[in-house]
């Protein structure tokens, strides 16, 4: 359905108009959210093709991990299961979402090589696809929280609505990370394993399996870690506190910083992506 106005696609190497092109890419990518959604959905169905439980395996495997870790660590840390397990459930589900988003971000452009080299498409579509795919996975896991809360008799607190801006921050961060990591991982193929090992370190230092208050007087310094700050902005509201001004401030500043770095990179190197993948 050709529109009434003829589209013009012009490029002059002497005057590349990088910012304008990057902005067009961003708005074009967001306008194609239906495509990103369709691709994200097909990613999930591909992964579980022919399996009987399908995406429910996501929920199940998280459940198994919770069962094992919950019992063991409650013993190790000598804390009450009824106190620890609901907290660990929220923690692990959020961590899995964040970790998988970062991992997917590293292959977000290299994985779409076939499409990138064959047809012009806003690159931001691929970043949106990563965010949407992980949102779908998270949606499969979130009901587990309700189940565990019900079993352990934890009543949701009004602060739970604050989790929504928390998730929004995480989605924005995931989108920016997909653009940034997607680009540098396409250019330098050693980055994905580096990111992988950094995330492993992050798992242990970001208060995923241990509670922040176990850290004693070091606890206020935790928001220096961006992974903790973003996770806590969602976890604390679900657990019934606001999380505090410092956590929110840190989460917003870290996300803004990531967005800014990604944008600068994207504006400067967008035109090179097709040569990198």
């Amino acid at each position: 359905m050709s529109s009434t106005t003829t589209p013009v696609h012009a490029f002059d190497a002497a005057d590349p108009r990088r910012r304008e092109i990057a902005l067009e890419d961003l708005s074009g990518g967001l306008a194609r959210w239906r495509l990103a959604w369709a691709l994200a959905r097909s990613d999930i169905t591909h992964r579980y093709r022919g399996s009987i439980l399908g995406p429910l395996w996501l929920t199940l495997s998280t459940g198994v991990m919770l069962g094992a870790l919950g019992f063991l660590y409650a013993k190790l840390f000598r804390i009450d299961m009824t106190d620890y397990l609901p907290w660990l459930t929220v923690s692990l589900i959020l961590w899995n979402t964040l970790n998988q988003t970062v991992t997917d971000a590293t292959t977000c452009l290299t994985g779409a090589e076939g499409v990138i080299r064959q047809m012009p498409l806003p690159y931001t579509v691929h970043a949106l696809r990563v965010v949407m795919r992980n949102a779908i996975v998270a949606a499969h896991n979130l009901p587990l929280i309700a189940v565990i809360f019900f079993i352990f008799g934890v009543a949701p607190h009004w602060t739970v609505v604050l989790a929504i801006p928390g998730f929004v921050l995480m989605a924005i961060g995931g989108f920016a990370a997909s653009i940034f990591l997607g680009m540098i991982c396409a250019r330098f193929r050693d980055i994905p394993p580096i990111v992988g090992s950094l995330m492993q370190v992050a798992f242990f230092v970001s208060a995923v399996i241990w509670k922040p208050d176990m850290l004693g007087w070091w606890e206020p310094y935790l928001p220096i870690n961006p992974v903790f700050a973003v996770m806590e902005a969602i976890r604390a509201p679900i657990m019934g506190t606001t999380g505090g001004v410092v956590v929110w401030f840190a989460a917003i500043v870290w996300t803004a910083l990531l967005v800014w770095i990604s944008w600068v990179f994207f504006v400067r190197f967008r035109g090179r992506i097709a040569f990198w993948v």
Partner: peptide, 23 residues
């Protein structure tokens, strides 16, 4: 798909590309 390193390119009109059928 590719951004030129030198020169100018101006394309007017909706493009249909049959470069790789499987893309």
């Amino acid at each position: 798909v590719y951004e030129p390193v030198a020169g100018r390119l101006r394309v007017e009109g909706e493009i249909g590309s049959l470069i790789d059928p499987a893309a």
